[in-house]
């Protein structure tokens, strides 16, 4: 079984440039989503570990809008 390497470069290209994440983050209901968050989320799963939780990523990279949405 060969090692799997997430195709991060292509994923980022598709999300940021081809689909255009700015259309998504421009919507008021998604206002706390930042480019940093979008980049950070896919980077972490390969190192899946409790210390590397989605909660800590979100906490570090979301726009501080309403602290109750972030645990």
């Amino acid at each position: 079984m060969s090692a799997y390497a997430a195709p991060l470069r292509d994923m980022k290209f598709v999300i940021n440039e081809l689909v255009g994440i700015s259309d998504i983050t421009a919507m008021p209901e998604c206002a706390e989503i930042t480019g940093d968050l979008v980049d950070a989320v896919p980077m972490k799963p390969p190192n899946l570990h409790p210390a590397c939780s989605i909660h800590s990523i979100a906490l570090a990279t979301r726009k501080a809008r309403d602290s109750s949405t972030v645990r």
Binding site: A6, M11, I15, P42, H55
Partner: peptide, 19 residues
């Protein structure tokens, strides 16, 4: 208790898990 991330942000993560 979810993170409420847009589907398009969850897509690459789910793709990796499935791969």
């Amino acid at each position: 208790g979810g993170q409420g991330l847009p589907h398009v942000v969850a897509m690459p993560v789910q793709e990796m898990w499935n791969s």
